[in-house]
Structures are given as C-alpha cells and as structure tokens.
Design a binder for these strands. Structure first.
Length: 876
RNA sequence: GGGUGCAUAGCUCAGCGGUAGAGCGCCGCCCUUACAAGGCGGAUGUCGGCGGUUCGACCCCGUCUGCACCCACCA
C-alpha cells in the first residue's frame, strides 16, 4: 500500500550545494513551500480514489479570535499523522473547518457593539445575526492564515462551517429524526441560567469553583411553631414554599404537616418531611425554594409544592415590596438586614466555603432557574456510545482515559439543548396559535397562517459539533465522500472536551450512521502549559501567540518542540528555550545536508552490496533500519514525544556526530569506498528527512528536494525498514566510539586543546579496529609519529594501545588524580560484584544472563585495577 | 463526598524487577574548512517518607505526606 519513491530527477540536484547558506532561514522557505503544496493539490482528498482512506477531522476552532499554542499543538499532531499516512499511500483527508461557537461568538460581537454603545436589542435579531456573519468573515480568515503558517496539510476545498447551509440541513435532519423517535422533548425544569448571557446553559458548561460564602441562620415561624434554617442564599427565601426536615428527626416531628410563617411575607408555608434532608447538617431543617434550586425543585415535586419564581432573567427580584428590582446580591444583604431587624437572624454570617457554579463563558455566577427548555433524551444514545468503546469498536488512547469516558457516558443526565441566543441554529419547531408544536423536517414546509411562528431558541453549539465527523462529508446526502471517509480513522483532541464533544459525536454518530461510531480511535492529548508547568492564560500573562515564535524560530521549530513534549494524555510544557533548541536542530539538519551535498552524496542508483560497504556504512544502515521500525511503532501508539526524540538522537548523535565525521576520512581517501559512502550518506539523509517530514515539514521538504531532485517529500514514500541489520558492524563502530571517547577524555584531562595535534603511535591490532586507524587519527587529531617521537603516555583501551608523545604538554598531577579516582571506582566495582556473586541465593535465582553480566563486570574491574596500577607506577 | 493521576538531576519530563536517562541550564577547553543556532570533555540525583514482597525495588504491594485534575443537587 505504499507509493513508489519519487523518481530521481533526471537533472540531478535542483541547486548546487554552494547555493545553501550556512544558516537555515525558515522565512525564506516556509511560505513558498506551503503555497506550492496547496497549488499542486497534495492535500486534496479524492473520494473516488481506490486507495485506502485515512481521515481526521479538525476539532473545529471557534470563529472567535485566533489560534493559540494549544491549537498549534493539536494541529501538529494531526498534521504529522496525516502526512505520514499520505506518504504511506493512503487517500488522506485532513478535514478543515470552524465552529460557530454560539455563546462565545455572540458574546464577542456583543462586546464589539457595546463599544459603540449599542446592544443587540438595538439592532434586532436579523441585523445582529447579519453583523455576526460579517465579523466571522474577518476572524475566520485569520484562523486559516495561521493554519497555513503552521503548515497544516488540510484540504481547503472542503472547508466547512457549522452554520453552512449544508451543515444546517444536517442539524435540521437529525433534530427531526430525534424528535420523531421521541428522543427530543420539551420540559419545564430547573436549568443553569446565566444572568449575563441571558440563556440556559448545559450542566457541563458550568464550572464549579470554591467560593467563600456566609451561612446565615434564620428563624422561621413563631413560638412553638418555629424552627431555624441555615442558608447561603437568603434572598431566595422570598420564593420558599416549604421547610423540609428529615422524616425521622425527633426534633421536628411535631411540626411536620403544620404551617409556619415565612418571615418578611404574609405567607405561611408547610413543614414537610423528606429523606433528602441530612439531619446532621446545620440545623437539620432546610428552606425549600422549588423555583430556584434543583434539589428544592425535586423536593417540591415530591410534595406537590408551588413553584414561586421570584427573580427575572437578570436575577433581579420580581416580588413586589421593598426588595423589588434588587440584584440577587443586593437583595441578599437587604433581606438579611430586614430579618435581623425583626430579630430572626439567630447565628449570622458564619464563613462557609462551598462550591458555586459559574458560566464557563463569562464566569458569572449561574442562577438555577425554572424554565421551559428543549432536551435530548440521552439514555439510549449514551448506552450505544458506551457500548461502542466497551465492545472495542472504538479505542481510546491513552487507555486510562477510557475510565473517564465511561464514568460520564454511564451517568449522563438529559442534555438541555435550547439556548436563548440569536446566533446559532434556530430550533426547527413551529408553535401554533393554540400552543401546539410541529417539528419541521428539512424538506417540509413550515405551517403557515395566523398565529404560527418558529421557536425563537437556538441549539447548543455542541449540537452541530456532534455531527461534525459526517456533516462535513455531506450527510444527510449519501455522498461519495461520506461513503469513503466515514467513519473517520482517528480523532485527535484534548481530554478537556471529552464530554463536551467526543461523547456527543459518539452518540450522534452512532445514532445517525446506523450504529457505526464516528471514528475508530480517539487519541487524547494534554493541555499546553508554560515551561514551569503552569496553565497558560491571558490573565496570568504567560500565554504565547504561536505566530510570535514561528516568526522568530520558524514553524518547524514550534512544531518539533510541541511534538517532542507530546506524551499521550499528559499536559505539555513548552518554553521559548526549547523552541530555540528545536530551531538549532533544524539548522543542524540543514548543515548536515549541506555537508552531504558539498561532498557529492547521492540517492541515485542502487545501494552498494554489503561487501562494498565499510563497517561504518553497514553500521549506519543497520541503525537506520532499526530507527524506521522504532518510529513506526511509536506512531502506531501515538507516542509523538518518543518518536521525535528517537529521530532527534539518531540524526544528531549517530548520523551527524559519528557517521558524518567518520565519512570525512573516507571521502578524503577517495576511491570506491568513498563512492559507496556517498551513496550511503545520501540514503541515510534521504530516509531521515522523510522520517522527520511529518513533524518538521518545511525544512525537510526544502532539503529533500535539493538532495534528491524529487518532486516533494510531501508525496514521497514513507520509509520502510529494509530489514538490514549488522550486529558486527554495530559492535565495531561502538568500539571505535569508545576508543575515541576515552582518548578524548584523556586529552581533555591533560589540558590539551581539542584541536591540538599530537604525535602518536597506534596499535589497534588487538582490538580488531586496524581498518579504522585513519579515522581514529583524524577524530583524535593524532599525527604520525615522526622523528624524535617518544611516547610519554600509553593508554591501553580495549584491545588497542595508543601511545602519545605529549612532550611537555602533560600534567602529571592531573593524570595521577584521574587514575587514582578510576582505581577507587574499579575497586568499589570489584567489591560490589564480589558481594553479589558471593550471594548464593542470588546466583541460584538470578537469570543466567544477569549473572554472566556481573561476572564480566567483575573481570573488567580486575583488569582495570591491574592496568591502572601499572599506569600509576609508570608516572614519574 | 467520590474518582483518577502524579511525586526521578537546578527546571520540565522520560524510564525500568537487575549498579539512574533526555532536553534546557551549569563548569572547562576550542571559531578543528557542514554547522559557534557549533565541537569536545565534565559535574549533578539517599528516584517524596515509612513499612512489606524479593537473591535483588526507582520500578510490585501497603501506608503516610504533598500536588494536580475530573465528577457530584449537601442547604
């Protein structure tokens, strides 16, 4: 299922090596490349293709405002996944679009209006909505601009908006179906009301927060017929229609069934017995306000109590009298004052911390309010959504997030979907003159005539988002796109909207699409945080505009940093220093490729056969294959941090630091080995660039086209592991690395400058590294032992001996210290291993390879001690 | 009140039943002709506390402490 590699260009590398400057400047290539990708149609997804489809939909950003680092993060992950699949030969759709974001957007535009001193009511519904559309045109453009900068490989021809005609039709269609199936109903209940947004909001749009409140104790009734209730919301007492006590509470048994006087009013209210009351809490007596508290509402229902609404939509008191028109907070203190004046405040203002709900959009304290709203009956939908995961038809990554999913899906309350807003999908129900309602399907004519009007409420914004995986593909029409790209392959989104969005997509997708859930896999990512792990927020001042960093360091650097921090489901800290490090990495790749080009690295022709390859060639090819396999495995497990890190270290530590350095000697010598190395270097870079491309798309494309002459790495084949491994070569090069590192350490300890040439004789015969003498000399800056050479230091390393003429440069004191330290370490090692091996139960029970390993260590320690002792003895 | 997760190098985080790792930061030397956005070398941890299992625990179990987050109609 993979495409062929781009045929190598007939004209060779597109530009001469000398064309590459010594520093990578992202701005020079990013914009140019993105436009090229789009023009060439690389990101277009074709429904008629016979390739296997791979689909990811964008979690649609709100049209309000601009993308933040969290979006950049999410997009990086999605883009990496889709770019890889595209390279693997899948028909890949990365579906773009935006969400109308009901309340959020309406609020933003209302704020704009407020600056002009107007409210939406000054404009009227139609003009206001018109205004939002105009505003959306600007804001949406900004978001697509940011996505282009990020390099998002989306199919722009398929861009959708949740209020598009097509998607609105999808909304009306499913509404009608749910309605006719009895899964949408209208009911009067206590809902969460935002007195600032002037709309109902759903349970999950309420953010609970511990607030410092005050608990006031008030005496209700008089004399014998009195009791004390405690409340944090004294103002609601005007709406009390009962006092409740526990049925088994002896303190109040005599009062149950009696009427007592409600202070500040001329009403009396009954005392009722209800098991909901906790006799241990407060006084054991609760005031009951059915119209303003969800618990009280339930108590009221059980006892047939009247529901007395005492506040309007702004949460101001509507009861005639001294408190009329007061805001709920003003009313609270006014009423406590009045009660105090009557001597009814028994124990006042005990500080009390309790959790209070706030509107997630504007942070206003939510007011529970009795009102008529539209609801989705969630039971059957949620069960199906849960089963899809339980039965393994949908997999959640990381897997421990699944428990959160079930927790939610298995305990879901009916979903309040109506909003008293203007911006959104208007509910397709018409009210008749006699209070009758008709749900109107998308192809039906609404009833006309005297007294008929459409419902004024709009739908919760998540109602349309829940359809996103299929509405964007043309549903309810039976489009080819729908047939090809549904279900989506993967959903990539933050764990924070698991309930808002994922669950609802699961419910509606499974319902609308004949039981087929909307995606196969859900990959949940964490939230972006600052470099100290703190949540990013505008008010805290640590929020970062991704564009700033992209301007300074390039999009690749931002993307690589984000990918490198992406451990599944875990929050991602990101700091500017880290972006800098990624920028350095991009630059390093740039320069390594530049080196390769300057030295004639090539991708043309087949790889030389194994016997034509040097050990270094075989080593790096062996490692390359292993890395391809490793990266693939990490991708399958959404381990972006791991795969990025693996590539980073392979490229830098192995290819750049060692293979490139070793190849310098080979190139200098020339001949067939140099030709082989040129081909291998080309191969390694070609593959590495392709492996890196999904995460770091720009610099890799620029370099890959230059190196290979291919059309674009975007449409190049994803590397496959050729399965070439050479353990001998890996061991051999490891030995070279060890030798070089040890001698380098010695040199550094002697205070020799890194570049200082030192005459030396090498005896590599015992180490099997004789073939590497030239390379070792080059890496260690050793010159041939000339006239008057006299070894002043001799280092046995492995089976090799390096004799150096340091004449004068050596610091014997430092050397003595170093050797003494090494000796102590070796002696400690010997003691430790001796203790282990002397432990019979250890030797008996530990696996053989472990025992063998420790034996080896013991022998090494003995040899070290002998060697070091000898060296110490030789020192003057 | 339930639930989940986390405590590892100065910071942010990987890791794993067999003598601790990365990036950044830090120290020293170096503009060694791909790269100073670089090279080479180096230092650094009672792996949160206490118990237990095991030949062996950073890893498993229990417990304590601290910190996050999610859910919940306690006035």
């Amino acid at each position: 299922m993979t495409q062929n590699t781009q045929p190598p260009g007939t004209t060779g590398p597109a530009s001469a090596p000398a064309d590459l400057p010594t520093q990578y400047t992202p701005a020079d290539v990013e914009g140019k490349l993105y436009e090229r990708w789009v023009e060439r149609g690389y990101f277009a997804a074709h429904a008629k293709s016979d390739k296997e489809p791979y689909t990811i939909v964008i979690p649609p950003p709100n049209v309000t405002g601009s993308l933040h680092l969290g979006h950049a993060f999410e997009h990086t992950l999605i883009d990496a996944l889709t770019r890889r699949k595209r390279m693997q030969g899948y028909e890949t759709l990365w579906q773009p679009g935006m969400d109308h974001a009901g309340i959020a957007t309406q609020n933003v535009v209302e704020r704009e209006l407020a600056k002009e001193g107007k409210s939406r009511h000054d404009l009227g519904r139609e003009a206001f909505v018109e205004r939002v559309w105009r505003w959306k045109a600007d804001s949406g453009g900004q978001i697509s601009g940011q996505m282009r900068r990020l390099g998002d490989g989306v199919d722009w021809s398929r861009e959708r908006f949740t209020m598009d005609e097509g998607l609105s039709r999808a909304v009306r269609t499913i509404f009608k179906r749910l309605h006719d199936d009895g899964l949408i109903y209208r009911a009067e209940r206590i809902i969460n009301w935002c007195p600032r947004c002037l709309t109902a909001i759903s349970d999950i749009e309420v953010e609970y927060q511990e607030d410092d409140g005050e608990l006031v104790s008030i005496r209700y009734g008089d004399g014998e017929d009195s009791l004390v209730v405690a409340t944090t919301r004294a103002e609601t007492m005007l709406g009390d229609t009962a006092v409740a006590v526990h049925p088994d509470d002896p303190r109040y048994a005599h009062l149950v069934g009696r009427e007592i006087k409600l202070p500040l009013t001329d009403r009396t209210i009954p005392v009722v017995a209800d098991p909901h009351v906790d006799p241990e809490f407060g006084t054991g007596a609760v005031k009951v306000t059915p119209a303003h508290d969800p618990n009280d509402f339930e108590i009221g229902r059980r006892h047939g109590l009247p529901q007395l609404t005492i506040m309007d939509e702004h949460a101001a008191i509507t009861v005639h009298g001294p408190f009329l028109g007061l805001d709920r907070l003003e009313a609270r203190s006014a009423i406590v004052g009045a009660l105090r004046a009557e001597g009814r405040v028994v124990d006042e203002k005990r500080p009390y911390r309790h959790s209070v709900g706030h509107c997630s959009r504007c942070k206003t304290t939510v007011e529970p309010r009795l009102s008529m709203q539209w609801w989705v009956k969630v039971d059957p939908l949620a069960r199906a959504a849960g089963d899809a995961v339980r039965e393994g038809r949908v997999t959640i990554h990381p897997k421990d997030m699944a428990s959160r999913y079930f927790e939610w899906v298995d305990h879901m309350h009916d979903w309040c979907i109506s909003r008293q807003l203007w911006w959104g999908h208007r509910i397709p129900v018409w009210h008749g003159p006699d209070g009758e309602t008709v749900c109107v399907g998308p192809d039906e004519e609404p009833p006309s005539g005297e007294g008929w009007h459409q419902e004024t409420d709009v739908l919760d914004t998540w109602f349309s988002s829940a359809l996103w995986p299929f509405s964007t593909l043309g549903w309810p029409e039976k489009t080819e796109s729908l047939a090809t790209f549904y279900p989506n392959s993967t959903l990539v989104t933050g764990y924070d909207i698991l309930f808002f969005w994922v669950v609802r997509m699961m419910m509606f997708g499974t319902y609308a699409m004949d039981g087929v859930p909307p995606f196969r896999t859900v990959a949940l990512h964490g939230m972006v945080r600052d470099q100290f792990g703190k949540k990013m927020s505008k008010s805290f001042g640590n929020a970062v505009d991704p564009l700033d960093w992209m301007d300074t360091y390039g999009s690749d650097a931002v993307r690589f940093t984000l990918a490198r921090g992406a451990n599944p489901g875990v929050d991602v800290p990101i700091g500017e220093d880290w972006v800098q490090a990624s920028r350095n990495f991009a630059n390093k790749i740039w320069n390594a490729t530049r080196f390769a080009l300057l030295n004639g690295a090539t991708v043309e022709g087949p790889l030389p056969s194994a016997d034509e390859l040097s050990p270094a060639d075989r080593w790096i090819l062996s490692r390359l294959g292993a890395v391809v396999a490793e990266v693939d495995a990490y991708y399958e497990d959404y381990q972006f941090a791991k795969l990025s890190d693996a590539l980073f270290h392979f490229a830098w530590d192995e290819v750049f630091d060692w293979y490139v350095e070793l190849s310098k000697t080979t190139f200098a010598a020339g001949g067939p080995p140099a030709d082989a190395a040129r081909r291998v270097l080309g191969e390694v870079l070609d593959t590495t660039l392709r492996l890196l491309h999904p995460v770091v798309p720009f610099v890799t494309d620029e370099l890959w086209t230059t190196l290979t002459g291919g059309e674009s790495v975007v449409v190049a084949a994803w590397p496959t592991d050729p399965g070439f491994r050479d353990a001998d070569a890996e061991r051999e090069i490891e030995a070279v690395k060890q030798l070089v590192t040890e001698v380098r350490r010695f040199r550094a300890d002697q205070g020799l400058q890194p570049g200082q040439r030192v005459p030396a004789s090498l005896d590599l015969s015992g180490s099997g590294l004789a073939a590497h003498e030239e390379a070792v000399r080059a890496l260690l800056r050793l010159t041939a032992p000339g006239e008057g050479f006299s070894a002043t230091a001799t280092l046995p390393v492995g089976g090799a001996t390096v004799a150096l003429d340091l004449s004068g440069a050596i610091d014997y004191e430092a050397e003595r210290k170093r050797l003494t330290k090494d000796l102590a370490a070796a002696e400690k090692e010997l003691a430790q291993t001796g203790a282990k091996l002397g432990n019979d139960s250890f030797v008996a029970k530990a696996p053989d390879h472990v025992v063998a390993k420790i034996r080896t260590r013991q022998e090494t320690a003995r040899a070290d001690i002998e060697r070091i002792t000898a060296q110490l003895a030789r020192l003057p």
